[in-house]
């Protein structure tokens, strides 16, 4: 128990380091990319080249991804500050967001599945 806790700590530190590296590179190179996504791509490259072995980050990654949704709760609470806009045109915005998300998801989901099937009949 104590050991796996320590594992989570130092593995998280490694993830954090790559996250900061991503942010730094994006800033230095003026890339149109958020630092966390850049960090994800860097970590993928490290894994693909074998510089980082999956077991170096396995425990912490498993834990963080299992609770990935948690991080969006404090962020979503921020919606509170748009109360007046919501009262004014909240329904219209809700319809727009829902309809556009639905169409986008259907287009991606169906086209990917279709192209997949065509490849492996």
């Amino acid at each position: 128990m104590a050991r796996s806790f320590l594992n989570i700590i130092w593995q998280t530190a490694l993830l954090w380091l790559v996250f900061r590296l991503g942010g730094y590179l994006v800033g230095a190179l003026h890339l149109a990319l958020p630092g966390n996504v850049a960090g994800m791509l860097i970590m993928f490259a490290l894994l693909a080249t074998g510089a980082v072995k999956p077991r170096y980050i396995e425990v912490a990654s498993g834990f963080l991804l299992k609770h990935f949704a948690f991080f969006f709760i404090p962020i979503s609470v921020g919606l509170m500050s748009f109360g007046s806009l919501m009262r004014q045109s909240g329904l219209a915005l809700l319809v727009i967001l829902a309809a556009s998300a639905a169409i986008g998801a259907a287009v991606t989901g169906m086209s990917v599945q279709l192209l997949q099937k065509r490849r492996e009949p």
């Binding site: 860097i42 993928f44 991080f71």
Partner: peptide
């Protein structure tokens, strides 16, 4: 509480 969202996004590299 959101401090670890960055490292968690980096962690997506593993399932990838």
């Amino acid at each position: 509480m959101t401090y670890l969202l960055g490292p968690a996004t980096v962690a997506l590299a593993l399932p990838l």
